[in-house]
């Protein structure tokens, strides 16, 4: 019972804050609503008994990435006043793109219930020891490849951040 209420509460919160991300005029408010969205999604992970994923989600997304977002927005001092007026052409393009995105989503969700529902083999798969075993045994190669990807992006960031010396 309680989990069901929690699910509804978190879902409503997630959808509301996600909408507010788009609708708020102030970019800082948008970022803060995005943080709330991440939190409610982390709550969903908790409900699915994957505590590790929930906490990592909070630490990485809410705790690190969103802070950097806030940084950039605060440093640039973006306000409603400085927001440039968009031309009708841009607005039209945005509507078309958004519509296409929505179309894809609708189609994908429609076809989703035709897929056979895969029962999770282990309901405790989200617990950290199980997750670790799966990651380091079955998915060893993709895991390491993704870490190389991060390394590459880090090297790229350092290259960009370095002072140019001729």
């Amino acid at each position: 019972m309680l989990t069901q209420y929690a699910f509804y509460f978190l879902s409503i919160l997630a959808i509301f804050s996600a909408l507010m991300v788009v609708f708020s005029r102030n970019p800082v408010h948008s970022v803060l609503y995005l943080v709330v969205t991440f939190f409610s999604i982390a709550g969903h992970y908790f409900l699915m008994n994957s505590q590790f994923l929930a906490m990592v989600h909070i630490i990485v997304y809410a705790g690190a990435i969103m802070v950097l977002f806030l940084y950039v927005i605060m440093m640039l001092n973006l306000n409603t006043d400085t927001e440039p007026n968009k031309s009708n052409w841009v607005k039209g393009a945005a509507v078309v793109t958004g519509g296409l995105m929505m179309l894809i989503l609708v189609v994908s969700t429609k076809s989703a219930d035709q897929l056979p529902i895969q029962k999770a083999l282990n309901p405790n798969i989200g617990l950290i020891s199980n997750l670790g075993k799966v990651l380091y045994n079955e998915y060893m190669l993709p895991f390491e490849v993704s870490s190389i990807l991060f390394l590459v992006s880090m090297v790229g960031a350092v290259m960009l951040g370095k002072k140019e010396t001729y």
Partner: peptide, 25 residues
């Protein structure tokens, strides 16, 4: 007794930045 207690501490600490950033902004 969360089985990821330390991660929980980290999650909460990483949220601590917001209090400061929001207040300052």
């Amino acid at each position: 007794d969360i089985n990821i207690g330390i991660l929980y501490v980290f999650g909460v600490v990483s949220i601590g930045v917001y209090g400061i950033m929001i207040g300052g902004w």
